[in-house]
């Protein structure tokens, strides 16, 4: 009786899973570019390998439960004298080793390949991504434009995202284009992505960053190359310029709508502190110039920049 209900339950679960499969084609399982595709292939391969383990264990488990459960026929059970079985133990150490090798090799290969451009023959485009409380800022250094909370990319062109953060860490994730990478304050990270067709994909922050973290969702619009160029030209012509003050206001905590700018101020976000203020280093009486000389110079420039900035603010 109990077994029968078990079979019914299994049947229903299978039915539910099968009917669910068609709706699974979104997010990670719906790769739309070469990076996501590589990861998808790896995921599917790991699922295949793990299914072998799963089925083997479950079959053994059910067999043991059915065969050796306490019943009236084995009431005279006497504990069998049993020795350790070396062969069995070697077997179930060896099988996991083989499976892990089968997973480790493609893992290492993919790890290294993701460091490189997904389409090395294509000229890539660079986009600087900055997460700030609680918004995404996208700078296009080659085009000199900036967008907020959405990003347009050319289809079939590898994109090299340069990731930074002002304030807390976030994680830049567009599941349909590929895996994520953290945005961290004070250091720059890189992520290659590419869309192999036009379309709109949802991205979001995957690392909790405080109050309005949930709303850090953005669209990635992949446009045909010519359309992308038209869009850039149009932005340059029509969108407003962004002043330093506007940029500093943008860094203040809050949620903003999508924005587009035809220029952006030259501020190194890696030199900003948790609240978006420049890191000022007070001069100490025993200050000296050591190996940090280059940094020092940069730092002075930034300070001057900011002094200048506060000046303009006063006016």
């Amino acid at each position: 009786m109990r077994l029968k209900t078990g079979y019914v339950a299994i049947f229903f679960t299978m039915a539910l899973l099968l009917s669910g499969c068609s709706s699974l084609k979104s997010g990670v399982l719906n790769p739309q570019g070469p990076v996501a595709q590589k990861q998808y292939d790896l995921i599917i391969w790991s699922i295949v390998l793990m299914s072998i383990v799963f089925i083997a264990v479950i079959v053994l488990f059910v067999y043991m439960l059915v065969k050796y459960r306490a019943k009236s026929t084995n009431e005279d059970y006497v504990e069998p004298e049993e020795k350790e079985n070396k062969w069995l133990e070697v077997l179930w150490t060896a099988i996991p080793v083989v499976i892990i090798i089968a997973l480790a090799i493609p893992t290492v290969k993919t790890t290294f390949s993701l460091e490189k451009s997904p389409s090395p023959n294509q000229k890539p485009i660079t986009i600087q991504v900055t997460s700030a409380n609680w918004k995404w800022i996208f700078k296009y250094p080659e085009q000199g434009i900036q967008t907020v909370n959405y990003v347009n990319i050319p289809a079939n062109v590898p994109v090299r995202f340069q990731l930074n953060a002002v304030g807390p860490m976030n994680s830049f994730w567009v599941p349909e284009l590929g895996g994520q990478e953290y945005t961290m304050p004070g250091m720059t990270m890189y992520l290659w992505l590419e869309a192999d067709k036009a379309g709109t994909f949802i991205g979001r922050s995957a690392n909790f960053s405080g109050k309005d973290f949930t709303h850090m969702q953005f669209n990635v619009n992949s446009l045909e190359k010519t359309k992308f160029e038209d869009w850039v030209a149009n932005v340059k012509k029509t969108a407003p310029k962004q002043t330093e003050k506007m940029f500093k206001d943008l860094l203040k905590p809050g949620v903003v709508k999508e924005q587009t700018y035809s220029s952006y101020p030259n501020i190194d976000v890696n030199r900003l502190d948790e609240n978006g203020n420049p890191i000022l280093e007070p001069q100490s009486p025993t200050h000296h110039h050591g190996n940090g000389g280059k940094e020092d110079n940069e730092h002075k420039e930034l300070e001057m920049d900011m002094n200048h900035n506060s000046h303009t603010n006063h006016k």
Partner: peptide, 8 residues
């Protein structure tokens, strides 16, 4: 951070 090091 621009301050003194151990050497000093």
């Amino acid at each position: 951070a621009g301050g003194p090091s151990g050497k000093e």
